[in-house]
């Protein structure tokens, strides 16, 4: 295996509130190799967006990284000063967020925003940068890019705007992209176009990607490996095929079973009873134990770490050997 581009070690993110300290992320470790797409799924509040935010250094107070390390190419980036981190963001790490309208500045033309990003991070003069910006707009599939470059964000439709955001994230040629729900705000027919685009660009440029989404269908089509988050921890991590088809953690199994199938009608969907605990009320032992159909006494007492479960690694005592 090649050396990982991104390595997250035992990351812990805490929020200090008047009612005490909430742990939003607890002991999260993962790696992403160059050219690899790691999918991250989970229910709202599971910590998937928080992981993305921690990697790009955008956790806002009162949240803070309380423990652990984030390494890009073996170099720590979680303890950089704000101005140093700004150099890493954009140049090394590109970010794509859910809502393309809030990512773009409505007062500047798309071209100006692209040129600004390119000249900040690459040794190009403004004319060269503009040429490069047009090339990027063409690459993400914007028709008549040479004319549209002087348009403002509101003159684009939602799908086109998200393409501009993708161009903006990629134009400094970062080595890692953190994409947080990049297609959630889009309609299915547009979503399919954007997924195909992201996949193609990542493959062509050898860019690594952390793809955060709650849509298992998007993950199944795009990711190489998947991390399933539950209550601030990774419940299971492994190759996408095994996570989808043969999950080893009861939560992953429940999550997969609860997705309504498109190809047949079932009389009763397999729901997981209850809901994910709030951060202020995570039960002792395994956080999933109150909802787990295969719970036993050890789950209530002791918290499982990620254990080897054959094809994947799962935080579940069912996979404890000896």
């Amino acid at each position: 295996m090649t050396a990982p581009l991104l390595e997250v070690r035992n990351l812990r993110v805490e929020f200090h509130t008047r009612r005490g300290t909430l742990t939003a992320l607890n002991d999260v470790s993962l790696t992403i190799a160059p050219g690899e797409v790691l999918g991250m799924v989970g229910e709202s509040g599971a910590g998937k967006s928080m992981t993305g935010a921690a990697i790009i250094g955008l956790i806002e107070p009162p949240g803070r990284i309380a423990a652990g390390q984030v390494l890009l190419d073996g170099r720590r980036i979680d303890n950089l000063r704000y101005d140093q981190m700004r150099q890493v963001r954009g140049r090394q790490i590109g970010a794509i967020f859910q809502d393309p309208l809030t990512t773009l500045n409505p007062l500047y033309t798309v071209g100006r925003q692209l040129v600004e990003t390119i000249t900040t991070h690459l040794p190009l003069n403004p004319a060269q940068a503009r040429k490069r910006a047009i090339e990027w707009l063409e690459m993400v599939g914007i028709p008549a890019a040479a004319q549209r470059i002087d348009s403002y964000p509101h003159e684009f439709s939602g799908g086109m705007r998200q393409r501009v955001v993708i161009a903006l994230a990629l134009c400094a040629e970062p080595r890692l992209i953190v994409a947080d729900e990049p297609t959630t705000a889009l309609d299915v027919s547009i979503q399919a176009q954007v997924i195909a685009l992201l996949k193609r660009l990542a493959r062509e440029k050898g860019t690594a990607m952390l793809l955060v989404t709650h849509d298992m269908g998007v993950i199944a089509e795009t990711a190489d490996r998947v991390a399933v988050m539950y209550a601030g921890r990774i419940a299971e991590i492994g190759p996408v095929r095994d996570i989808v088809k043969a999950p080893n953690h009861p939560y992953t199994a429940g999550l997969m079973a609860s997705i309504p199938p498109l190809d047949r009608r079932v009389d009763k969907l397999a729901a997981i009873e209850g809901s994910m605990p709030r951060l202020s009320a995570i039960p002792p032992g395994c956080a999933y134990n109150p909802r787990c159909p295969r719970v036993f006494d050890r789950c209530v007492r002791e918290r499982p770490d990620l254990l080897d479960a054959g094809t994947t690694r799962a935080a579940c005592w069912l996979h404890a050997h000896g």
């Binding site: 939602g158 309609d187 027919s189 979503q191 399919a192 195909a196 269908g217 998007v218 199944a220 089509e221």
Partner: peptide
């Protein structure tokens, strides 16, 4: 047909689809 084709499906791992072009 285009709508159904556009939905990412769990069984389609790794498959490339031909998305509908254009926008609403």
């Amino acid at each position: 047909r285009a709508l159904m084709e556009a939905i990412p499906d769990l069984d389609m791992t790794g498959r490339t689809r031909i998305p509908v072009g254009g926008e609403v």
